[in-house]
Amino acid sequence: MKPVDFSYLNAMNLEQAENALAGQSCSIVSGNQSLGPMMNLRLARPGVLLDVSRVEELRRAEETDTEVRFGAAVTHAEIEDGTVPDPTGGWMRAAASNIAHRAVRNRGTIGGSLCHADPAADWVTVLPALSAQISIAGPDGVRKVDAIDFVVGPYATVLAPGEIVVSVAVPKPSAAARWGYWKFVRQVGEFSKASAAILDDPDTGRSRVIVGALGRQPLLIDKPDDVIAGRIDGKAALSHALPDMPACAVRMHAVAIDRAIEQMAGSPE
């Protein structure tokens, strides 16, 4: 089908984007790879579309000694190809390379995927596990939100009207850090049915176990060190966190945790 008609604004820099957002309510779009299908199916009917895919400030990635700050409109393919620096020495590249299909990765962006907030999306799970921080520009200036607090439910984020995600800062893990990210998909490119991302980084104290694709926002598991060391098994951790979770879902996500731990154990540092 064809989308319902809408107005289209195209910003080339952040000021233009912010002016447009101040003027009226807009749906912000970059690659259009998630919103596009919904619009074509007429499930999404934005009145005004603000295209930020070419906004200069959002297209940069900046590396410092401690982190890499990705502009929100950096594409998955640019991360996959190493066109922009990877603060994790390859983990983000690997995660990016398994998002949907290459043609989608060429247009889809890290910020767009986060803001779309599909619970099964890769960055929605991976970025909280890496303790990423999201910078949001709004009428009152820039505020920062931890990635784990950014998505608050299916397709729902902390973004208020008039706000736009500017960048995603991912801290560099320590040299001894280990990583595992496993997702259950029955065919390449589909949304995952269960996923887990695990960072084991005792030197920085940023060890984390995140469970994704739950239908809700990503779940931060308590006592990650105990889960990583096997003192608490995945099923117990999940049942403790979400007591109402159906048994089959617990099992599927517990397997995701186990596989991510196995992957981490087998991966060279």
């Binding site: 195209n10 259009n32 596009g36 299908p37 074509n40 295209d51 989608v104 060429n106 247009r107």
Partner: peptide
């Protein structure tokens, strides 16, 4: 026409792109 089948894939700036979920206006 929803980004799934890949039949509409064309090169935009040298990169394969799904032309059914890419707006013409975004290709200026």
């Amino acid at each position: 026409e929803q980004g799934v089948c890949g039949a509409c894939t064309v090169f935009v700036d040298g990169r394969p792109t799904r032309s059914c979920i890419t707006l013409a206006a975004a290709c200026n």
